[in-house]
């Protein structure tokens, strides 16, 4: 790709803080482990040359990790499983 290319993954032409739609889309795919091997490679190459994407990616990773660690905090109340089991298995005709 030439210097004038506007492709976001042209390493000669990093995002410069603009974080184009293509970049964001790819960032989310990588973040959610939905990217193809080729997309991972492309993104990793891009991160080496683009500080805005690098920072955004790391913040998104940190937030995702915090959500996983801090938001699964509701414990099932005592007796609920037993109640469910009893209702389901003994009252299967419930409509």
């Amino acid at each position: 790709m030439g210097l004038n290319s506007t492709h976001p993954f042209d390493d000669n032409n990093p995002c410069n803080g603009k974080l184009s739609g293509d970049c964001l889309e790819l960032l989310n795919l990588v973040l959610d482990q939905e990217a193809s091997p080729g997309q991972y490679k492309h993104f990793n190459e891009h991160l080496k040359n683009c500080m805005p994407c690098y920072e955004k990616y790391n913040i998104d990773v940190a937030i995702k990790k915090m959500i996983r660690e801090k938001c699964a905090d509701r414990r099932v109340p005592n007796g609920l499983v037993e109640t469910i089991r009893a209702k389901v298995l003994n009252n299967t005709s419930t409509e």
Binding site: L24, I59, I63, M66, K70
Partner: peptide, 19 residues
């Protein structure tokens, strides 16, 4: 794009309640 001043350390310093 929300160009926040959020930094990784800021996120990591947050307590569970805030998240």
């Amino acid at each position: 794009v929300i160009t926040t001043d959020l930094r990784v350390e800021t996120v990591q310093d947050m307590i569970g309640d805030e998240i």
